[in-house]
Design a protein around this nucleic acid. Structure first.
Lengths: 227, 227
DNA sequence: TGAATGAATACTGTATACAGTATTTTTTTG
DNA sequence: CAAAAAAATACTGTATACAGTATTCATTCA
């Protein structure tokens, strides 16, 4: 018998595929808020039956990415309260998570993928490529999250980051905001390179603060829009 | 038209009912780890078809209360790593949440249900009633959680508390542990009454620490069991 | 013309049938 | 008797049919 032979990749269940497809569409902001997501309609578009669609919708709903509008599901329109609540959680968990990994990011090997993502962000910014920048931003988070040893904590971070990622297309379309974000990523990476957990947490907090503010202004939830 | 007339209670969907029933059984430790939960079997016992059962199982699984054992679902046996991870999250979110509400718990009216739950715990402890004590413990958490203004934060706290609640029957069966827990609840309540957020967070941290230790010893995950 | 009523439609909840796969048991063969 | 092969079984993934309910549209009556 051959040792350490991994089981063959079984084709992903349809429900899983539908879930991932809808999720990525949500992340890209390709599904607008308010528009109802109906089982039959989606099933037809995706070429599957209602069952896997239903499963995916309920799963997204249980994660808060969709809400059940009595009958069908819709992408929730975030209120200012929602944004405050989400960022309260992000401040809490992302600063804790990044502090957690600073102990072993002094090693360049561990930092490899983080630095790669940062470099990609720099390139995208220089090329003025908003989509590539957004991708690099996602890669940056994925890179440092991969070092967090607590999978449950990772899950929470990913979940609430996704809530905002859905709208990130809006803010990262602005080159000025990309400049600010890039500086934030740089500060976080520098703190990690120094192995300074407190500095990394502080940099993350500032970074999230800037992102929150940019979002609120972009969507017009701030007072200036009302006045 | 009659004003303020609430919509009539619609009967809960079967999937919802199955979910709640299974969840409460998990909380009470009535479903042992390792035993596979199979759709057909559960459907037959509950008198419904596989569909709602399936929905409930997937939902519990997505919340981490069950894991998919290739085919069916099982209650995961918590390793020491799991316990450490779960409590890392609990330390983080429950201290933050309790700190958040201390600002308005100086008012006795706001503290009402918290004090009630504490009183119930005292009575249960004096009566040496483990079940009632467990209930009071749950009520205490529900009471202070009801004051937390961030529903998403509440959800995270509830979710990870439930992970442990499932085993709490074990530890709270011991009168000595109940004494320790009761002191912990008292310290938290006192800090809240004083409106001292930092003290409340510290009391919560100590309380969780004691609970974690009691659990590790009760299940025999500690070194003493191995040695 | 406006409101109320009834029919038609659209959608989800639930049950069940069918297909595919892993596991176990039985049978067969050395 | 042991091992391998084959069959039976048990289970989940998916599709689809059916039922119930809410919503929308058309029709009728004042």
């Amino acid at each position: 018998m051959v040792p350490s032979l991994k089981p063959v990749e079984r084709p992903l269940a349809l429900g899983e595929q539908v879930y991932h497809k809808l999720r990525s569409h949500l992340r890209n902001g390709m599904i607008v808020a308010g528009q109802p997501l109906q089982e039959v309609q989606l099933a037809e578009q995706l070429g599957v039956s209602r069952t896997p669609v239903r499963e995916a919708l309920r799963r997204l709903s249980s994660e808060g990415l969709l809400v059940s509008d009595g009958r069908s599901f819709v992408v929730p329109a975030l209120t200012l309260d929602d944004v405050n609540d989400i960022y309260e959680i992000r401040f809490l968990v992302e600063t804790a998570a990044i502090r957690r990994i600073a102990a072993f990011t002094q090693s360049p090997a561990m930092r490899r993928s983080i630095d790669d993502a940062l470099a990609a962000a720099v390139r995208a910014h220089e090329a003025n490529d908003a989509d590539a920048f957004r991708e690099a931003n996602i890669s940056f988070r994925a890179a440092w999250l991969a070092l967090v040893p607590n999978p449950r904590l990772v899950r929470i971070v990913e979940q609430y980051a996704d809530h905002m990622q859905r709208i990130r297309t809006l803010t990262l379309g602005d080159a000025q905001i990309r400049t600010i974000v890039l500086r934030g990523l740089g500060r976080i990476a520098a703190a990690l390179a120094a192995g300074d957990g407190d500095a990394a947490a502080a940099a993350m907090h500032e970074h999230l603060s800037e992102a929150k503010h940019a979002f609120i202004v972009a969507v017009g939830l701030d007072d200036s829009a009302a006045g």
